[in-house]
Simulated scan of single mutants.
Amino acid sequence: MDDALVLIERYGLPLEGRSGEGWLLLKVPTGFELQWATALASQLGGRSTATTDSATAPMAVVPDVAESKSAPVAGAPAPDDEPSAADVRRLAMEMYERLEDAGGLPITLTATGRSATIHGKVFDARKESCRRQPGAKPGEWECEAELMVGLCSGDCDPSAEEPLPKGERIPIHWDPAQRRFTLDY
């Protein structure tokens, strides 16, 4: 399990703790649980299994639910209006910056089993639409945006790549403490 702890630290993933059976529980960005589980399992060379189901494997990934969602925070109430085009643009760029700060997005090609790391840079983002999900709290939105993104794999600089269009769904919520919209993870 030492290799797993080194890998977790390398990717900067918060260790949630251990299950009663001693399995490692990790927090990952909401919506990326399966990708992280697959990447971690492939990086460990099959010596361990990563999954989103903590009941079936020695290492499980769980969504990183922001503390601000679980505890009420004093601050500005959520606005009734959806996030502005400027908010969506800022958050799309921040989302890809976070991925880069974490070392890129590890992937595994299912046909070959080969692993790689994808790096991306958002050059521009244009808001298409925003909608509330069923059961969403006030200030929670899912916005669609058309991004111009430079992508590359391996040891590369995504800012040197030719930007191409890419559609993206961006989970956004109102943070009363910051008095602005933020990413929903």
Rank of each mutant, 00 (worst) to 15 (best):
T56W: 07
A57P: 00
P58Y: 12
M59N: 06
M59L: 14
A60E: 00
V61F: 01
V62Q: 14
V62A: 11
V62K: 10
P63T: 02
P63Y: 02
D64P: 02
D64F: 08
V65Q: 05
V65I: 13
V65R: 07
K69S: 13
K69Q: 11
K69I: 11
A71P: 04
G75F: 09
A76E: 13
D80A: 15
D81F: 15
A86R: 11
A86M: 08
A86D: 12
A86Q: 13
A86Y: 05
D87M: 03
D87L: 01
D87P: 04
V88E: 05
R89Y: 02
R89P: 00
R90A: 08
L91V: 03
M93Y: 07
E94N: 00
M95E: 10
M95V: 11
Y96H: 11
E97K: 03
R98T: 05
L99F: 11
L99W: 06
E100P: 00
E100G: 00
E100Y: 04
E100H: 03
D101C: 08
A102P: 04
A102Q: 05
G103M: 03
G104Y: 03
L105I: 07
L105K: 06
L105W: 05
P106Y: 05
P106M: 08
I107L: 13
I107A: 11
T108G: 05
T108D: 07
L109F: 14
T110Y: 13
A111W: 13
G113V: 03
S115G: 01
A116R: 09
A116G: 04
T117G: 07
T117Q: 05
T117H: 02
G120L: 10
K121W: 10
K121Y: 10
K121D: 09
V122H: 00
V122I: 12
F123G: 07
R126W: 08
E128A: 15
S129L: 12
C130G: 01
R131H: 11
R132C: 06
P134S: 08
P134M: 08
P134F: 08
G135D: 04
G135L: 10
K137P: 07
G139P: 07
E140S: 02
E140D: 06
W141G: 02
W141N: 04
E142T: 15
C143A: 06
E144S: 14
A145N: 05
E146A: 13
L151F: 13
L151H: 10
S153W: 11
